[in-house]
Design a protein around this nucleic acid. Structure first.
Length: 107
DNA sequence: GTATTGACTTCAT
DNA sequence: AATGAAGCCAATA
């Protein structure tokens, strides 16, 4: 782990923390807002490295089509669904209606 | 150095 | 709606 990635992870972390309750964002959206356009995959990596230390709302980050990024059988999938529902976000068959719930950030 | 890996995205079936 | 290929690009190995 080098200092470069630490800064990027911090930027990503900051954006995820700003996702309001009851809304969701896509990995690509978070990347763009963090000043890292085109690095959607890096967002997932950053979150996976942080998930053990801090409690950030990682579960508000979904794929661009609203689908949860984990297999249905995984424990993480089930936790994510539960947390989203707790936020008041409707999840149907592992996906969220982005037109309804996607975070419209104002920059 | 090159190769592989992803909590991704988009386009085409 | 579901599936797959191709594109993507930094982080790891």
């Amino acid at each position: 782990m080098n200092t470069n990635s630490i800064d990027k992870y911090k930027a990503i972390n900051g954006v995820v923390l700003r996702i309001p309750v009851g809304t969701v964002a896509s990995y690509g959206q978070v990347a763009a807002l963090a000043g890292l356009p085109g690095r959607a995959r890096l967002v997932g990596k950053a979150l996976s490295s942080r998930i053990n230390e801090m409690d950030i709302p990682w579960y508000r980050v979904l794929r661009s089509d609203g689908k949860i990024a984990f297999a249905e059988s995984s424990i993480q999938y089930q936790r994510q669904v539960e947390q989203l529902k707790h936020d008041g976000v409707v999840v149907i068959k592992g996906k969220v209606n982005m037109r309804t719930y996607q975070w419209e950030s104002v920059l």
